[in-house]
Simulated scan of single mutants.
Amino acid sequence: MKKKERAQLVQQRLMELYPEPAIPLDHTDSFTLLVAVLLSAQCTDKKVNEITPALFRVGGTPQRMAALGVDTILDIIRPLGLAPQKAKALAGLSQQLIDRFDSQVPQTFEGLESLPGVGHKTASVVMSQAFGHPAFPVDTHIHRLAQRWGLSDGSSVKKTEQDLKKLFPEDCWNRLHLQIIYYGREYCSARGCDGTKCPLCRELYPNRRKPVVHRKA
């Protein structure tokens, strides 16, 4: 099976499983989505969703978040990984949204990536899920599955993103990003599958016997 054929099969199977995938991070607008995505680094979405209701009650806008200050933000998000760095980033980006963007989340990659704590993946999620801009955020699930499915060589997250954008139509990127994440969690997790066990891995590579050795992001 050629790479393009594998991509088409992946897209078909994921549409059957997850025709309308929901954004897994709870949010109410572009600002709360930006905050939730930033908090999700090295944390599960489930854990972030447990913490954000209390944070959003007192810091649901850039003005209110900036007014909280780093120490108060840290007290609320302390159960999350990298909490000190994230608290500092949230206070800083909130103030910058006020000072530079009229308290609005910028709708460009350049503007988003200029904010403290916001890298390309976070910006891609916000651009795709908040503003509907075609983007293909690559997290650990997507990076891993792209290698298992022979869609990218795994040499870097940037390369994986480039390869997936070439293989799939632009109008499906935003949905497919979520579909792959859901499939990775449910069927093809890091420990639950080694490239030979889940339904898609077996269908794509029926003769594969050895586990796939991943190149880390």
Rank of each mutant, 00 (worst) to 15 (best):
P169T: 02
S103C: 05
D45I: 08
G150P: 13
V138N: 12
R175L: 14
P84I: 07
M127S: 03
A146Q: 05
I73L: 10
V157P: 09
L55P: 07
L176G: 00
P21K: 06
S30Q: 10
D71F: 05
T196M: 10
E16N: 07
T52M: 01
R6K: 15
S103E: 14
Q129N: 06
G150L: 10
G69L: 04
A41D: 03
L39V: 10
K121V: 07
K158G: 10
R202I: 12
H120A: 10
G119D: 08
L97Y: 02
R202G: 05
R100L: 14
L90A: 01
S152H: 11
T28E: 14
K166P: 02
S189F: 03
A83G: 07
L38P: 06
A67S: 15
L39E: 02
L93C: 01
I23A: 11
E50R: 15
P19R: 00
F131I: 12
R144K: 13
A146T: 03
I23E: 11
A123K: 07
T108A: 06
Q42T: 08
H133P: 01
P21M: 07
A66L: 12
H27M: 10
K165H: 04
N49I: 04
A7C: 10
W173P: 07
F136W: 03
G192Y: 07
G59F: 04
R100M: 04
